[in-house]
Each structure stands twice: as C-alpha cells, then as structure tokens.
Design a binder for these strands. Structure first.
Lengths: 345, 345
DNA sequence: ATCGGTCACTGAACCGGTTTAGTTAAGGCT
DNA sequence: AGCCTTAACTAAACCGGTTCAGTGACCGAT
C-alpha cells in the first residue's frame, strides 16, 4: 500500500511539510488547508509510516515489559496475562504497541533492558516485580529510558509509581483469623527479595503484633507450588504447628492445602488457609479458598496510562494509588477445631 | 549514543556503502577491508540503528502474537506465559523482538492484525488457538503478512504449521479409563470452535468407539472453571451418570473435581477425572490430577524458529511435527468403585 | 508610505541506514 | 596491445517522514 506523504501532498497541492503540520496539529497551516489536507489524506487512505516517523522523530511508539521469571513458575502465575491484558486496553487506541521480553536466565534481564534501549525498540518500560534495592532503577537511568514502577520502590526513584497496596489484604486476612480465635497463624511468604514478598510478610507480622501474638511461624518460599508444599510440611511438623496459614499467593495455598489434606488434616477444621490473588480456580477448590482479590487488569491499564502521559509530558509526576485488594472469605477459613493455648505461653 | 554509520565510515576511511556491505556480509568489499571496517565499528561501539534499518529495508525485525481471549480466562491458562517464554528463547539472540497484542473484545482481533500489518510493526505473526474455518488465514493473505500456525488448520493454508498432536494424549486417557473398567466415560470439551477443542472431542469419541462404547456423554464448555463446573453438574445429574470424566483442560478438571467432591463423591472411587496441560498445580491437588503434559515452551520456540526461517527464506515449507504430549497418571483415576453394566445396554 | 511582525507555506536538510549506478584498477584472454 | 570481465569501492539516490530556514503576502502601527 504505497501511498506516502508525498502522494498526499501532491494530491492536495501542498508541500510535504504542510501535510506533516496538518497531520500533527501543529501551527503552520490554516484551518482550511488543514481540513483539506486531512480529507485528501483520508480519501487516499493514507496513514503515516510508523518506520519513517520513528526514524525522524527518534521515537519507537512502543512500550516494553521485561518479565523475569523462572519459566516453571511463569505458567502458574495468573498475574501477568491479566496485567498484560490491562496494558493492552490502554494501548489499544494510542498508536503504541507492547514489546514483551521474557528473561528466563538470570543475567539476561539486564541484557534485555539494554537491548530494548540500545535498539530503540521502546520509549519506556513498565517495571513489575519490584525488588528490594532494585538495580533496574539505576540501569534505566543510565539507559535513559522512561519508566513506571509497580508500587514505589524502597530506594529513591525518579519514576512515577502506580501503587496497589498489598498489606491491607494480608492484614485483613490475619485479623480475620485472629477474630476466629486462631493464635498460631503462620505465613508462607514469597521471595523476600521482592518488595511484595517482603511487605506481605511485614503486614502479617505487624497485624500479629497488634494482637499480641508471636511472629515466629514464618517460612520463605518462591511463590511456586513445590516450595509451598515444602514450607507447609515444615510448619505442620513443628511442635507448635499453626492452626492457620496465610500464604503469599493462591498457588502455594492450593498446594499447601492439598498437602495438609493428604496428611489427614481437615480444612478448615484442623487448619485454616488463605491465599492471595483470588485466582479463578480459588472458588472451585475444595474447600473454596479464602483469598485476596487483586486487580491486575486495572493495574496494567493504569501503569500504561501513566507511562504514556509521562512520555508526552502530561503526567504531573505524582504516584497513582489504586484501591487496595480486599479479603474474600470462603470455606478454607474457620474457627480452630480444638482450641489450644497461645504458642508462646 | 550518537555513533552512526557515517562515523564508522569516516573512521575507517571508506564510504557508508562499504560499511553497510561489510556489516551485512555482502559482496562489495575485500576480506581485509571488511575486517578493518568491522573492527573500527567495534572500537567505536557502533550498532546499526534499528529504525534506520527498518525504514530502508522495509522490515520490522519483530514478530507478532495476537492473543484473543476472554480476559477472565486469560489469567488461568498456563499455556500462554510458557508459550511466550518459548518464543523468547528463540528470539533472544536473533535481533527480533516480540510484539504482543491482547484482543479482549470480539472484533478487535482482526483490527489487531490489521494494525500490526498496516503499521508495519511486525514481519510475521504466530497464529495460535486455530479455529475451524479460521478467517485469519485469508486475512493474513490479504495483509501480506508471513505466519506460522499452531497445528495445521482445517482449511487450505499456505503457511507452515508447527504441530503438536493433542489427540494421542486424550486417546491414552480414554484407553486408560477403559482399561480400568470404566464404561461410561464422559468428555467435557473446550470450545468446539477451536480445532484443539474439536480434535480432543474426536479423539475421545474415536477411542470410545474403538472399544465399543457409547459417545453420548459429551458437553461443550469454554475451557473455564465456571462452565467446567456447570458441565460436571449436568453430567452427574443424568440417569446414566459417568464414572469417569475426561476434561479438555486442567482448569475444568480441577473445578469439576472439586464440585464432585462437594456433592459427596469420592475421587477416584466414585468418579475418575483427567485433565489436560499438566499444570504445575495438578500434582498438588487432592487427589493429584491425572493429566496430559503438553510442552508449550517447546512449541513456542519451534514456532518462532520456523517463522524466522520462513522470513529469511531458509524454511523448506514442510510442517514441523513435535512429539505428542503423553498421559501422566496420578491419583484422580482408578477403577470404578461399584461396577455397573454398560450404559447403553 | 514605510517598517516590523505574524501567518501560511515551501524547499531542502535531516534521521541513519540500504541499494543502485558508476568509477577505477587489475587481471585474463586472444 | 587491445578488449572484456570482474572485484572493490564511491557517490548519490532512496526509504517516508519531521523540522528548520526562508519567502511572500498581509496586517497594523508609526
């Protein structure tokens, strides 16, 4: 479809420059001429070439997302597909596209960002899975890429953040269990290197402390089913085994719940269990899983919007705060069957 | 990092053209000069500008993937994340990137392909979730985009296909159940509009027929948990309720299994259940789910490789056939508890 | 009547590569 | 020695936009 700006210019009896001005809403053409140019452009079915535009304007008209995950865990995580779908809803009619990179090898993540920047594939990136002391912030600064972060990192960052508090849901879950009468409430956390892994643990610990309970029943896992089972086995084998376990995500909760049942425990009578993410299958487990319903779709669309605004200069620089996910109570939590004294007493 | 081809040319004492020839391994420079040019290029840290290259060579150096899914189902499907990870392993050191589009609205799918083609974002696309009488083939032909399809479509297609047979696993599952003594084996299929939905049903039906059994216990669902439960409820409420259900994926199997348990059925004693995909959590269910282990990672990397070869003309045009996924037997299948006579008799 | 300033627009340079046409020198053949 | 190829290279056109420097025309002010 070889209709170029020159064709339009010729057809409208103006110069290439005039067409460009008309197209981009810039000064330099009268309103009459602009309309005439745009209508002949429409008549010819012309749309400016993305490639030519990219070259001369030094922009890629694309956003990047680098997903660094163990490929084994990738398939089970309901977050990314929905999150990406959210990004797309924003990008759909923006003229921007999403360039997705998956970094499965450790070390290939940095290389991915470097490549995206160096090749000029993208104008900005969305940083997910923020980590403590996240090295990507300095990296992006060095590369000169724009960015948004999911939640505010623990180190100074010049990039706007789109925040969805994950402590409130965990606090609700713990308080819910306390209210039911549990006193030994464990936490199987995700990778503590991630700030969402760490903050969930902190929320769990803080809520326990508020209720005067001990915070010794903690195990770090990797958000995957296998380690979720291992952590559960570890906890249940202890002398002061918990009567409730707050997991950092649904996958570990699902796996842990199944393991406990195999060990002959009844859920929720002998052990209460909560997850995080409110995966679609959570409500179909047996018993249905009490979970915390995050909204990755909204997170994705908001993050993309903030980044786009950032790129065209219309973002005010303030962080965007989204509603905090809330607890969804289901059958996997109930009062402990046989009450026992507080573990520390 | 403003080092351009002209800088290199000047530094090496040659013309821009010579640098281009040297870079692309074309004739037009002597071996000596080529080496000299490449080494000065390396010394200056020059890499050709993707944008400039795109413009002059009319290539995007990117592949596209359009995912058309109900956003509610997107998060639960373990296929895409792994599949995309597979694509990336191939693309990682190819100079190509992946442009991902998610089409959640019906109708926006075609628009997505049109946009990718019209903007020249990508040089080719990977077609997944092939459908019966798939309109995308004609569309891509019209758009002039290269493509690979996942499995060979049921209509004539000029595009190479990367095939992973999904009938063998289902046949194994059905035969496994027959061998255990089941005679009323139902199938909760996925959307029959998809060829993998249809072919799984056919495999189920054919294997039953081979064993002289009826094929009346079929319900179409949408691969989602909710419809999986509904289908299961429907089947279990029948007079000739099945003693085993072969589900078209793990999600529906998981949900169906949980539903059956809630109804007081013991699994596998009262009802055997099989899934498809071998999701990571499948082995952690209670009981662990017998499933069929596909390999989306391999599928993704193969598809990307075929498409790349197609683009640079090194593909021979033949379909690539990958190993068929096989049945993985776990605790959710066993001999039926109380034998009953064949349903049709 | 003249000057300065703005508006509307054009022509050309430019982004950074690829590719074509053309030049020069060397080598092979008769 | 003369002619034809071929190799090795250069200059310039080209991809299709954006943008800068000019150029008239028109306007209001002096």
């Amino acid at each position: 479809m070889p209709v170029t700006i020159s064709d339009v210019a010729r057809a409208a009896g103006v110069s290439k420059g005039a067409v460009s001005y008309a197209l981009n809403g810039q000064a330099g053409v009268s309103e009459d001429t602009r309309r005439r140019i745009l209508s002949t452009a429409a008549a010819l079915g012309w749309t400016p070439s993305l490639r030519a535009r990219s070259l001369s304007s030094s922009k890629a008209y694309a956003l990047g997302l680098v997903v660094a995950r163990n490929p084994r865990l990738l398939g089970t995580d309901p977050f990314f597909p929905s999150f990406i779908a959210g990004i797309e809803t924003t990008l759909a009619d923006s003229g921007y596209s999403l360039v997705l990179t998956v970094a499965t090898q450790t070390g290939s993540e940095e290389a991915s960002y470097r490549r995206l920047a160096h090749e000029g594939r993208v104008d900005g990136v969305i940083l997910s899975d923020m980590r403590t002391d996240d090295s990507r912030i300095a990296l992006l600064l060095e590369l000169g890429l724009a960015a948004v972060t999911l939640n505010r990192p623990d180190t100074p960052s010049p990039f706007p953040a789109v925040c969805m508090d994950d402590t409130e849901g965990i606090s609700q879950a713990v308080q819910h269990l306390v209210d039911l009468g549990h006193t030994r409430i464990a936490h199987v956390g995700g990778t503590q290197h991630y700030i969402h892994g760490l903050s969930r643990r902190n929320a769990w610990a803080n809520t326990l402390k508020l209720n005067g309970l001990e915070t010794d029943l903690f195990i770090e896992a990797d958000f995957g089913a296998t380690e979720g089972v291992a952590a559960t086995a570890d906890l249940l084998a202890r002398d002061n085994a918990p009567t409730a376990i707050v997991y950092a995500n649904d996958i570990m909760a699902t796996a842990g719940q199944a393991y406990a049942q195999q060990q002959g425990l009844r859920i929720p009578a002998d052990l209460s269990v909560t997850g995080y993410d409110n995966t679609e299958y959570a409500q179909y487990l047996n018993p249905a899983l009490t979970s915390i319903g995050s909204d990755p779709l909204l997170w994705g669309s908001s993050a993309a919007q903030v980044l786009l605004n950032q790129l065209d200069g219309t973002h005010d620089g303030a962080d965007v705060v989204l509603p905090a996910p809330r607890l969804i109570t289901r059958g996997s939590t109930a009062a402990p069957h046989n009450r026992s004294s507080s573990g520390s007493k």
